[in-house]
C-alpha cells in the first residue's frame, strides 16, 4: 500500500542551525496523525517544508508515492496537499461564498476564467455549498469575512482548505484562540473531516490531540523524539519530561 504522505530523512538547516533533523514520517491514507512538540521544536519549519514554502537542505517528500520536493506551493495544493493556518489567513473583503469558490474554481481548472461570472459554469456553487454546509457556514455566507465572528472565521479557515479536496490536510492548531463557547463546534468539525482525507494535526492542545489523533509524532529540537499510538505516547516518560512536564498543557 502506498503511503499518503511520506518524508525520508528530511533536513533543513539555516546556517549552523538545524531546524529539521532527519525527519522520516510515514502516514497511510486516512490517518489521523498529530505532530506535537514544545515551542521551537521545528513544527513550523516542517510545515513549510511539506507545503513547499521552504526547500529542504536534503531529504525527500512523497505524496502518494510521488516525489513533490521540487514543486511549488500551489502545485502541491493541486496534487492534494493543503494546509490551514494557526492565525487566520483569510480574505477580509471576500464573502464565504467567494472565498470557497476561489478554491473550487481553481481545482476545477476554471480559476483563470475572466470571461464569465464565478459559478456560472460547472458544478462550482454546488461544491461551495456542500463545503459551507459541512461547517455550518451557509447562514452567513454572503457577509464579508471580516464581519464573521472569530469562531466562524476559524471554520472558514478549514472549509476553504477542504474545498481544495486535499488527500493530505495539515491542520495548524485549528482551535487556536477560539473562545470556550465556540470550541466544541471546531473540535466537532475537525473530528468529522472526511475519512478518506489524511489529516495531520499540529497542535499544542493535548485535549484535542488525545481526542482526535490515532497516532502521534513528538518533535523535539527538529528531530522526531518518538512515535506511537496515543496510549504509548501518554505513557512515554521521555515525552512527559520534554513536553508534558513543561506545564504547557
Amino acid at each position: 500500500m502506498t503511503l499518503a504522505l511520506e518524508t525520508r530523512g528530511l533536513m533543513k538547516s539555516f546556517g549552523g542551525l538545524i531546524a529539521t533533523n532527519d525527519v522520516s514520517l510515514q502516514l497511510p491514507k486516512g490517518a489521523r496523525h498529530a505532530l506535537i512538540g514544545p515551542n521551537g521544536a521545528g513544527k513550523t519549519t516542517l510545515i513549510n517544508l511539506l507545503t513547499g514554502v521552504l526547500a529542504p537542505t536534503s531529504g525527500e517528500i512523497l505524496l502518494d508515492g510521488r516525489d513533490i520536493g521540487s514543486l511549488g506551493v500551489e502545485q502541491r495544493v493541486g496534487l492534494g496537499l493543503t494546509r490551514t493556518f494557526q492565525i487566520n489567513q483569510l480574505f477580509p473583503d471576500l464573502t464565504a461564498i467567494e472565498t470557497v469558490a476561489l478554491a473550487v474554481s481553481e481545482r476545477q481548472g476554471r480559476g483563470g476564467d475572466w470571461w464569465r461570472r464565478v459559478g456560472t459554469k460547472g458544478p462550482v456553487l454546488e461544491e461551495v455549498i456542500e463545503v459551507l454546509d459541512r461547517f455550518d457556514l451557509t447562514d452567513r455566507m454572503t457577509e464579508q469575512t471580516r464581519y464573521l465572528p472569530y469562531g466562524k472565521q476559524r471554520l472558514l479557515e478549514i472549509a476553504v482548505a477542504l474545498a481544495t479536496k486535499p488527500r493530505v490536510l495539515l491542520l495548524d492548531e485549528p482551535a487556536a484562540g477560539v473562545p470556550e463557547g465556540e470550541r466544541e463546534e471546531i473540535l466537532n468539525a475537525v473530528a468529522d473531516l472526511p475519512k478518506d482525507v489524511t489529516v495531520v494535526l499540529i497542535e499544542h492542545d493535548m485535549d484535542l490531540v488525545f481526542r482526535f489523533a490515532e497516532s502521534i509524532s513528538v518533535l523535539v529540537a527538529g528531530a522526531v523524539l518518538t512515535e506511537g499510538t496515543v496510549a504509548e505516547i501518554k505513557a512515554d516518560p521521555r515525552v512527559k519530561a520534554v513536553y508534558l512536564g513543561e506545564g504547557e498543557v
Binding site: 507545503t51 481545482r107 476554471r110
Partner: peptide, 30 residues
C-alpha cells in the same frame, strides 16, 4: 465581467493575502 469572474476574485484574494491565495492553489505569479 472580469472583476466578477474567478480571475477577478483571485486578484482580490492575492491583494488581501498572497500567502493564503497560494495555499489554496491559486498560481499567484501567473
Amino acid at each position: 465581467i472580469l472583476v466578477h469572474s474567478p480571475f477577478g476574485h483571485a486578484l482580490r484574494a492575492i491583494r488581501d493575502n498572497p500567502l493564503r491565495a497560494r495555499a489554496i492553489g491559486i498560481p499567484v505569479n501567473r
